[in-house]
Nucleic acid binder design. Structure first.
Lengths: 238, 238
DNA sequence: CGCTTCATTGACCCAAATCAATCTACGTGG
DNA sequence: CCACGTAGATTGATTTGGGTCAATGAAGCG
């Protein structure tokens, strides 16, 4: 079975056969979830860690006034917080953006994995540090860039992340998000998100169908928004 | 000597005498730095980790157009990235916001510390996870809250963080930042930051002198902006 | 085929940015 | 000890990116 976590960690380090086997052992009994359902809710004390195998999920918070901010995307290969058990309770929720397949991994399995395989432990560390770097980058995005560049940056980043796990659709990137979800990510209203998307479409950068945005001209998009992927700390390019 | 790192980690777990001694051993030969100087620059490959003992520092990024976004504050007791060595190069800079005292800690000392003292290793983990939670919270702040509430939230968070290391100035909080620095943090112009500060002053919440903001009525500020410190994962309140 | 979820468009509004001075502590050299 | 330079704070006038409100399409689905 295709193991996106192994693919992702391989982009940081060479994994031995034993390491890959250990990662494959995590995949037993995958679970299917529906778009819009929550995997973990704010306030929960998770006893397991989730590994996303198919589909997209996000971390998000909802404010008193009902507004929502998505603070991270999870794509196949993303493991949420291997060390979450140290904290008392979740300070945010994780929800599915599309239908998805998940593996639930017990606390013990994580401990065992990091104890046995130092390479994997180190690679998980790397992954955690990259997640933090992405958060910082998103903060810069929201704080300093205008709407068009915000969305463009998100697409560029996502393209690199999908490539990392071998999930690029040829020359294009498929973003299975509604414009509302995109807006909740980039802190824009649906209306304004739509106008940005229109503009990208008019420029021939992307094409849009219901619930799916296809990014064709990633090169030009990169040039337009001044994208620099250093912060993703990719080691080995395909 | 007062060890703010020990104070901070104590707010997560009980440290044994040996743990405290190990932390104290890190403090040798502190260095003084001037406001506006950089401790680490984007692109550097740090061979040491810094521990802030006195003063304020920040993580930040500068864009092509010269605009700057501060993405985190470091206050006394904050240790930057104990595992930074895993990454290739810094993706952001760390600069001093005020005159400060620092301890530089070698890679070996960190490795030794975490190998010897599992309690400290765990507490450092906790600290890293909290840093990430703070980043998520800042993202929500920038994305969903208006200027006044953004600044109010920052003050409330900072109040809790200073208390955690025993650095509260009685009932008040002293923020030694210029309005430009505050603006670079909350993604506001100096002009607008000033108007927010004026409003807080008119409300009797804070008082201002050159380069120093004093927050008096933290209770009312909390109530006004709906502050909830759950995300800081403080375990034991004073 | 009528609902519901998404996408789209137009008219109007506002929080915050921009532009442009002015003011006020300090700190410094003479 | 004081004139002057400079970083930081303040204020006013004007502009604007993006929000709000309100409909209207359009695709999928039970």
């Amino acid at each position: 079975m295709f193991n996106p976590l192994a693919a992702k960690l391989s982009s940081f380090t060479d994994l031995a056969d034993g390491d890959v086997a250990a990662l494959d052992a995590l995949l037993g009994a995958p679970v299917t979830g529906l778009a819009h359902s929550d995997v973990i809710r704010e306030g929960d004390r998770p006893e397991q860690v989730i590994l996303l195998l198919r589909g997209w999920a996000c971390r998000y918070k909802v404010l008193e006034d009902g507004s929502r901010q998505i603070v991270a995307y999870l794509v196949p290969g993303d493991l949420c917080d291997p060390h979450v058990f140290i904290l008392d309770a979740m300070d945010h929720s994780i929800g599915l953006l599309t239908d998805a397949t998940l593996a639930f991994i017990s606390r013990e399995a994580i401990v065992h994995l990091t104890d046995c395989c130092p390479k994997i432990a180190r690679a998980l560390w790397w992954s955690t540090l990259v997640d933090e770097a992405v958060l910082r980058h998103w903060l810069v995005n929201l704080g300093q860039r205008e709407a068009f560049d915000r969305v463009a940056h998100l697409f560029c980043e996502t393209w690199d992340r999908m490539r990392q796990v071998g999930l690029d659709a040829g020359d294009a990137l498929e973003v299975p998000l509604t414009q509302e979800q995109l807006g909740d990510t980039m802190a824009l209203t649906t209306v304004h998100t739509n106008r940005v998307i229109q503009r990208m479409r008019a420029e021939g950068l992307i094409s849009v169908t219901r619930k799916m945005i296809r990014v064709h001209d990633i090169e030009r998009l990169r040039a337009m928004c001044g994208y620099d992927p250093t912060y993703l700390h990719l080691r080995r390019r395909a």
